[in-house]
Design a binder for these strands. Structure first.
Length: 760
DNA sequence: CCTGTGCCTGTTTTT
DNA sequence: CAGGCACAGG
């Protein structure tokens, strides 16, 4: 397409962004303002007007989904085929991995290195903790790892940490960090953070590498800029050309990865970091109706950390945003499904989505949709590649590709069970250490310290691997995978007709299919495994006509005709773990905003007054976000009872969410007060609505030292932690401890008399 | 050395 | 409710 044609059909601000010349450019792209359009057109326009050769363009995104879309759309504009004439369009991690695979030695990596996922990371850290004799409760592996990750992403060194001699815990983390780094080096493995950090290392240690990468990044484009962290920012700065041709596209209102190190300052202070930067704001929204924009705009206006922009639409009219407050999560799902079925006549199922804060929330929706035989798909969630049987199969493949892969070896040397247990593995490890070689290589010596039985078993295992090596030469990749699944005995593990086994066999079959597809696209096994490590989904076009269920995080960048944001309850959205500081709360608000702005025509917000949490039925409270939306912008579809209740539960109550909160039964006078001062299972308890737990025994009341009765489900308030709900009671009398889930502070265990707990 | 059972605890979001 | 983990028995 010619350069002029590319500007046609764009609005003035879009055109300005697309046609802008050299130097830093920040495009503030509100939700639905044509961000991808601008990005892809800019890529095409750079080439079309002769400013750039395709291979001088590097465009990075955060998700594979976004990368794929950008690639496809750009390809259709520049008619250079799917290869984009050599332009790089992909995720940060793919970009990094390409560099590391090409120049591993510049980054200090072995020629063949492997990538470890978060499970592997955890496994390594657990071992290190054991080794150090540390209490895993005091130093949870995941926690330690996320702290390390935070340091890496903030460009902080171990040395800096070690200087913090005032804090023993920090010292411990520093030591663990060192050991973790050393362990990865031994294994020839890199984690996600390493990928980016090591590219930085390669760029600074090797001028030739730096020159090559920089040449290809002469025009640098960055999507979702609001989610970049310090490390990524440094990386961008390092490869940036002298003319500073960076195009950053983003929206601070959609920054949702603070927990992963995202620095909103990168977008808020862009002009400061890149002097002379040109800023274009895209505020015209093409996606949503006016009511949807009004509601989402009202919500996000409560945030303080923003540059501030106001989206507008030229579209008139539109369905009002609906609100539905259900008695429980089953009813919530039922209502949503009613709506979905009603909308089905005018919208394809693929254009509808139910969005929620946590993955666990999909359950009732899946059940309800299944019952009604409405096709759905869960996006993200328990990932295909993360399933145990798939990871086992991948471990075999990794061993074939990289025989020295110790992690893969240890994972499957005894899968299926061959009589190689912990004792044998330990012996192999010490032997490996003695000869100074990786475990899987050293294990070939079949050391005599092993029991005869283990020696034989190990021999058989290596026979399989050896044969695999020969088979691989003669077979097509997919056939080879099929053969390996059979020969390894993995498939045999799931013989039988039980549901679970059938599913697992099916998953393994799908893996083989994925390999076949990859090889059709010219990928060999190595490339396939890399793609898997980066979570690149093999299912290219999930155009299936099915309702989408997914988290708010996964929904970013997508759009649907109809969107349901479910679980608008305090502690869930905003999530209890993110309410400790104002920053966390603002991010939750952005998350809700992202969800709402996915909708084109219809948006509904739903909540449940009771919900299963920690295996118990608990009374919930409304999301404070509901109170931040003008009531006249919402159409309350709750049933008559819920509407009365909703007045206090849903809207007014949310407004006073900071203060002490009474349970809904009391406020409305529809239920009886909950066991105030009364002890034992009196009649009042079984009559109040939230007590009637579906077919489950009603928890007994337990007295504290003052004779006050407590039991699971009671709402309580605490001076510091605010309000919450009792999960369980331990002991009685003076020794009574209550496990409480606080809406804001999360889970705590308290002695009621000491903590001065109050009811309500 | 493997497997099964029962207890316990923890539950956010993802490249 | 679920997954992880420790322990006991085969």
């Amino acid at each position: 397409m010619t350069a002029e044609r590319l500007l046609e059909g764009l609005n003035p601000t879009q055109r300005e962004a697309v046609a802008y010349g050299e130097g830093p450019l920040l495009v503030l792209a509100g939700a639905g303002s044509g961000k991808t359009r601008v990005l892809t057109h800019r890529v095409a326009h750079l080439i079309g007007r002769g400013a750039a050769e395709p291979f001088e363009i590097t465009a990075v995104t955060f998700t594979n989904k976004a990368a794929r879309e950008m690639r496809e759309r750009a390809a259709s504009l520049i008619d250079a085929g799917p290869g984009l004439g050599g332009a790089f369009v992909g995720t940060f991690h793919r970009w990094a991995l390409d560099i590391l695979r090409r120049w591993p030695e510049a980054a200090g990596l072995p020629r063949r290195f492997s990538i470890i996922d978060s499970d592997d990371q955890r496994g390594l850290m657990v071992k290190i903790l054991k080794d150090e004799g540390l209490d895993p409760k005091e130093y949870p592996a995941r926690n330690v790892l996320s702290r390390i990750s935070g340091h890496v992403n903030r460009l902080e060194s171990v040395k800096k940490l070690e200087r913090r001699t005032d804090d023993i815990r920090i010292q411990v983390v520093a030591r663990l960090w060192r050991r973790y780094t050393a362990r990865k080096k031994e294994l020839g493995a890199v984690d996600f953070d390493d990928m980016l950090a090591l590219v930085l290392k390669a760029l600074s240690s090797d001028q030739a590498v730096a020159a090559s990468v920089k040449r290809r990044a002469r025009w640098l484009l960055v999507d979702e800029f609001q989610d970049t962290n310090k490390l990524q920012m440094k990386l961008l700065n390092t490869v940036l050309s002298e003319t500073g041709n960076i195009t950053a596209v983003g929206d601070e209102d959609q920054s949702i990865y603070r927990w992963r190190g995202a620095e909103m300052d990168n977008i808020l202070d862009f002009e400061h970091s890149f002097p002379g930067a040109h800023v274009v704001a895209l505020e015209r929204n093409y996606r949503s109706t006016a009511p949807i924009l009004r509601v989402s705009g009202a919500l996000i206006a409560s945030n303080t950390r923003r540059r501030g922009k106001k989206l507008f639409t030229e579209k008139d009219g539109g369905e009002p945003v609906h609100l539905f407050i259900a008695p429980g999560e089953r009813e919530e799902a039922r209502w949503v499904c009613d709506r979905i079925e009603a909308l089905q006549t005018s919208h394809p199922l693929g254009e509808m989505a139910v969005l929620m804060r946590t993955n666990a929330q999909t359950r009732p929706f899946e059940e309800e949709l299944t019952r009604r035989q409405v096709p759905y798909r869960v996006v993200g969630g328990l990932r295909f590649w993360q399933r145990a049987e798939v990871k086992d199969a991948l471990a075999y493949l990794r061993l074939v590709v990289r025989p020295e892969d110790a992690l893969a070896f240890e994972r499957v040397v005894n899968v299926p069970a061959r009589g190689i247990g912990a004792v044998t593995i330990d012996a192999l490890r010490s032997h490996a250490e003695a000869v100074g070689r990786p475990v899987p290589i050293a294990a070939r010596d079949t050391p005599e310290t092993l029991t005869p039985r283990a020696q034989v078993a190990l021999g058989r295992f290596f026979e399989i691997l050896d044969e695999a090596e020969t088979q691989r030469e003669t077979m097509a990749p997919a056939d080879f995978v099929g053969w390996l699944l059979e020969a390894s005995g993995l498939l045999g593990l799931y013989d039988g007709e039980e549901e679970e086994k059938v599913v697992r066999r099916e998953n393994l079959r799908q893996l083989a299919t994925a390999v076949a597809e990859a090889s059709l696209q010219g990928q060999d096994l190595e490339a396939f495994l890399d793609g898997v490590a980066l979570f690149e989904d093999s299912d290219q076009k999930t155009s299936a006509d099915a309702v989408s269920l997914m988290t708010l995080h996964s929904a970013k960048g997508l759009e649907f005709d109809a969107v349901f944001v479910a679980g608008c309850e305090d502690g869930l959205l905003p999530h209890a773990n993110s309410q400790k500081d104002a920053e966390g709360l603002e991010e939750e608000r952005r998350l809700a905003y992202v969800g709402m702005t996915r909708a084109r025509h219809r948006l509904a917000l739903t909540a449940a007054r009771e919900r299963f949490l920690f295996g118990q039925r608990l009374t919930t409270r409304p999301s404070r976000f509901l109170a931040e939306i003008p009531a006249d912008s919402l159409q309350d579809d709750s049933d008559a009872f819920s509407q009365i209740v909703g007045q206090s539960w849903g809207l007014e109550a949310a407004a006073m969410v900071q203060g002490p909160q009474r349970s809904f039964g009391r406020q409305t006078g529809l239920g009886r007060p909950q066991s105030t001062g009364s002890v034992g299972a009196g009649p009042s308890q079984s009559r109040s609505p939230q007590r009637s737990v579906r077919g489950r025994p009603i928890a007994a009341t337990v007295e504290d030292a003052d004779g006050k009765g407590w039991r699971p489900g009671d709402r309580v308030s605490h001076q510091r932690f605010g309000s919450g709900v009792v999960l369980s009671c331990q002991g009685r009398g003076p020794g009574l401890k209550l496990v409480i889930y606080f809406d804001r502070a999360g889970r705590k265990t308290l002695v009621p008399t000491i903590a001065k707990l109050e009811k309500g």
